[in-house]
Design a protein around this nucleic acid. Sequence first.
RNA 1: GGGGAGGUACCGAAGCGGUCAAACGGGGCAGACUGUAAAUCUGUUGGCUUAGCCUUCACAGGUUCGAAUCCUGUCCUCCCCA
Length: 408
Amino acid sequence: MINMSIPSVNEQLEVIERGTVEIVPRVELIQKLEQSYKTQTPLRVKLGCDPTRPDLHLGHSVILRKMRQFQDLGHHTILIIGDFTAMIGDPSGANKTRPALTREEVVANGKSYFEQTSKILNPDKTEIVYNSEWLSPMNFEDVIRLASHYTVARMIERDDFTRRYQNNDTISLHEFLYPLAQGQDSVHLKSDIELGGIDQKFNLLVGRHLQKEFGQSQQICLMMPLLVGTDGSQKMSKSYDNYIGIDEKPEDMYGKALSIPDDLIYPYFELVTDIAHEKLPDIRKRAVADPRNTKHELAWILTRMYHGKDKADQARTYFERTVIRKDVPDDMPEFILKTDSNHGLLDVIKKTGFVPSSNEARRLVTQGGVTLDGEKITDPRYRFDIQKDSEMILKVGKRKFGKLIFRN
RNA sequence: GGGGAGGUACCGAAGCGGUCAAACGGGGCAGACUGUAAAUCUGUUGGCUUAGCCUUCACAGGUUCGAAUCCUGUCCUCCCCA
């Protein structure tokens, strides 16, 4: 008998359904919850992740937060590091087949992933597994046997396959194996519930299908909406550069949060903040009535969640100062320069690392994106001619500041 | 296996012997503006010791005063037929 306390089914449902976009099938979820409650046996909740790019952002947090809720309800959660499936790469069209990661990379990425998820998940309640553990030993025969449980017609129903097929884009045969591999994970782990974004629906359903083929109880597919990124149009993703990373500096987090379009204020509150559920109706109203302040509140809460109250306060001050009042921040990196040589502006900008090339520096200067002590410098041939010890504030672009210190 | 069409900068896509560092759109960056790092408008978007030079149009050779553009080979993709 496991010593635990799983709350009543209704209590659980309320939490579980919060923010979900689809639960397939809801009735079976209720059945599983009832069974679990009756026997006080935790459900096995599975979430797969791709260890290729271990930089977590708020988009990931939507599902991780859901996972956390299951932990808090007393269920058993399993985080799969998809080190094996990463070799295939989820066939989303833009993805190309990825080179196999080395053992070291996998371990390093997995570790980094775990550390990052620990900001959201309860690390003590998270079972970590690597799917190479069971996928790697499978031989050709095993794969053929697995593949025989799915049909081509059903495979190309998946919308990105359909789209790519119609567009005459390449679809490598091995990409069909990705959903199967992910489904095999469910079979192997005998999962009761698999979490995923709504874009994962196909893969999650394959898991359900395979479990049935293998005579197991079928997992519930619980799907969360995709968080729209800061650009307000596409899903949050590192490759669209519209993301807010959970490791982001407080000031960046705050600023980026403020840059979202107004109509995302409410969804963000709902999906990625820890604000109490009862407060959401009020937020919904205020997001429309007073977007400015509500958005600042959102930015503050997010920053607080990942960096604490003090940092959140500082981030707010920083934003008000540098962006609203166009003032100079307190802290900025310092660069020490000799007074004897007369430095070229472009060189100095390049040395700060604010730009990737001197051409970029030249462009910024020419376009008026560079100031020294608040004064716009537009001559790319500008040279410093400093005799005495002194300091200057260099601003490059919208928000890169550096203190130039001239000294012998 | 046979026939056809292609591989161009971050992405999509023009160009088909010189005027091409390469049109146009998206994305990025910057300026103006703004409650905002939003929207909009404008500019910009290979590198460098920048009035000039260097390296790019799948890869390797070749023709030519000169090639992204022509030829040969290689690799890769798509379509039709089998």
